[in-house]
Structure formats: structure tokens, C-alpha cells
Amino acid sequence: MGNVLIVAEHANGKIKKYSFELAGKASELAKELKGTVTALLIGEGAEAQAGELGHYGASKVITASHAELKYYTPEGYSKVLSDVIAQEKPDVVLGTASSTGKDLLARTAMRLGVGLASDCVDMSVSNGKLLVSRPVYAGKAIIEAIPEGIPQMATSRPNTYPVPAPQSDSPSVVVFQTDPGRIKARVKEVVESEAGMMDLTEAERIVSGGRAMGSADNFKLIKELAKAIGATVGASRAAVDAGFASHDHQVGQTGKTVNPTLYIACGISGAIQHLAGMRTSKVIVAVNKDPEAPIFSKADYGIVGDLFKVVPILTEKFKKLLQE
């Protein structure tokens, strides 16, 4: 018997898609461990949706809310999580490697004195134990590891597994009474900002334009594409020089060094000055009309073509995809 507890997340009253993804994977693992999946949903606002987790494999959902749990705090949430673990005694605890999940599970694992494997790209069961793979050295090596202790803990990188088709099962929803106590690091305010305004250096997705954009007006195409995928706008030095974008958007040797998951370079030839600032991006996409442009030698995916045609179509396709 091996039960799995997953930490589900929610925002604006909706359960995160990656939590369904995690529920799906957890139920696969639980099947092998001959156990069940319990989901924990901490905080206010998504209790009504708790049942949805059942569609993706959780047979039980525990909700825990309290005035002090309105915002995520490591102290408050880890107290709840460790209390729930003490009550439920799961063999495996999984979370998503999101900004909340990574933080919460790390604090909890330490509190419980058990091992946590962060940011896993694969999870499986081997000899009745959770076995994970995760990249190290900026993806230049992969390790296989077993987090030790009971429960075994891991966070899974979002978008690693497909979200399973929802079933009609409905789980039992249980309310967990809790008092997180005094919180020493309190969230005072949450400032929402437009995704495109996010600083380049911390952006997960970047869409950059080069001089080939031709004018500041045409640069709007870049901004629209960025907006569609929640990316920050970047620019090559030449585009900044030409006045299409301000200097704080400049990516490259003398601009910002960025390291996003996805970097889309439009009309950027890929001089070393630019490459120096973005070549460690995980996935690089290039759109350029010159098939000889050096950017293609660094790109994972390339489209040789007129960016004024390709970029607007991409924007539409992404919008459609992300609306689904």
C-alpha cells in the first residue's frame, strides 16, 4: 500500500491546470503503489472547485482555509501541510515545481526531516519506491534519484505530463481545521502587473525583435505575440539603437543576460553580441527571412520566412491554443 498526497494550487478561484496534470500523474503512480491519491487545497477561494480534482484521479480532497492562509506563506502553509501529512500518513507527497510548490515542499520536507527531489522531469515507481529524474548543471546532466524518508517528496516540473481526460468521478471533500499561528513573514500586498512588464531577467518567456522589424510601429507585432503567451518583450541592440524599444529591453552582451524557458527571436540575425545574452535559453525559436542567419545555428526551431506574415499568424495560433 502506498498512498500519494498531492498539493494542489489555485488562483482566482480556479484550480491550476498543472495541478490536474499532477493529479493525473499521481494516480498513475498510486496505481503502481497500490494506493490512492489525496489532494490538499490550501487557502480560500477554490473550495467550490475542489471536486474537480476528482475528475483527474484524486479520490479525496482536503481543503484547509483560514484568514492567515489568504496568501501563500511558507510558515503557514507548511504547518498545514505537515499537519495533514501527520494525519494522512501518505507514503509519497508531490507538488508542482511552481513558485509556491517548490517553496512549500522544501520547507515541509525539512520540517519532517525527509528528502525532497525538486523540479523533476520524470517520476516513476521502482521497487515500491518513488524514483525521479531531474536535470542538474543547467540541464547538462540528468540524475536519477530516490528521495529518502517517509513520506518521499518531490516537485514536478509543470507541463511535463499531459493532462488526462477528465472522468466523472467525484471525490470526497473533507475540511481540515487548522490554525497556522503567528506568521513572521507576512504578505502585505499583491501587485498584479501585466505579464509583458515583467523584468527580462526573470521572464520565463521572451519574444524579441530585431532591426528587421523596420519601425517602432511594427514592433507592436512583437508586443502582441508576447502578450498572447504572457512573455516579456526583448530587443536586439540594433532594434534598440533604431529606437524601436528602450534600452531596458535590450538582450545581449551589453544588455541583459536572460535565461527563459522559451525565447522567440524575430528578425534577429544572431550576432554574437546578441547570442551572448540569450544562448542559455532552454528553447530558442527563430523567425528570419535569411536562411544563413547565425541565429538558426542556435535555434531549436526555425521558420525561414517573412516575419510580418509569420508573427501575426503565430499570435493567433497561440491565442487559440491558450484559450482552450
Binding site: Y71, A185, K188, S193, G196, M197, G230
Partner: peptide, 9 residues
């Protein structure tokens, strides 16, 4: 997604 928490500790 560009959201920022202001925290007092």
C-alpha cells in the same frame, strides 16, 4: 506571471 508579493518579515 509578473505578479509581485510585498512581504513584511
Amino acid at each position: 506571471g509578473g505578479t509581485k508579493e510585498m512581504i513584511e518579515a
